[in-house]
């Protein structure tokens, strides 16, 4: 699969996940109950929630990212987000929601692999070092149920925002990496 197709596939998977997450997050926030499922809910972000990788980025910096840096940022983010999401998945009380979360985690795992595939096809090394969260997610578990729900709220919101960002990231890459050019480069390296 050429890099161009691989990027397109990753873009499509990102859009699919974004769509899936919209309904899943709605269901999960309803499971958490008020005020978490209220549209104007705007809680402060506690220190623990700051550990979740943030999609927020300076506009000019984002524009100026190299392809490698852009992909690596995505790879690291989803690898960590996946770990947190798996913790969430393990604690959910309803079977139906647990099933949907597991399915989503599997798809998100697919996205991580897909991003890794794009990086390899472009000749970039996968990010070194621990890609999972700093400590086991439960290391500094929330002291009470409400704060635990706050952490979940921010995890889902950050994940949604990452998926929007990634759609723009991969769209940019799609335009910069037409399939034909990449094949030539591969041949030049004697592949």
């Amino acid at each position: 699969l050429g890099a161009g197709q691989s990027i397109q596939q990753t873009y499509d998977l990102t859009r699919y996940l974004e769509h899936q997450l919209r309904t899943l997050a709605g269901t999960y926030l309803n499971y958490l109950g008020p005020p978490f499922n209220e549209p104007d809910f705007n809680p402060p972000r506690m220190a623990r929630a700051e550990r979740v990788p943030s999609a927020t980025v300076d506009l000019d910096l984002w524009r100026g990212l190299t392809d490698n840096a852009r992909l690596a940022a995505n790879y690291r983010a989803y690898s960590r987000l996946l770990c947190y999401l798996r913790v969430l998945d393990g604690q959910v009380g309803t079977a139906e929601l647990r099933h949907r979360l597991s399915h989503f985690c599997a798809s998100l795992q697919g996205l991580v692999l897909s991003i890794g595939g794009v990086m390899s096809s472009l000749g970039y090394p996968l990010p070194a070092g621990p890609v999972g969260p700093p400590g086991p997610p439960g290391a500094s578990a929330a002291p009470n149920d409400f704060l635990k729900k706050m952490d979940d709220f921010w995890l889902l919101k950050e994940l949604q925002t990452w998926l929007w960002r990634s759609a723009k990231d991969f769209n940019r890459l799609k335009k910069k990496v037409p399939p034909a050019v990449v094949t030539l480069r591969l041949e030049a390296r004697g592949f």
Partner: peptide, 27 residues
Amino acid sequence: LQLFSTVKYKVTLTVTNALGKNFTTLT
């Protein structure tokens, strides 16, 4: 200044005239 932020924007508009004052907020 930043993109892809999870933090909401809060806009508050206050209107004042000689006879009173009012405001509205959007988040």
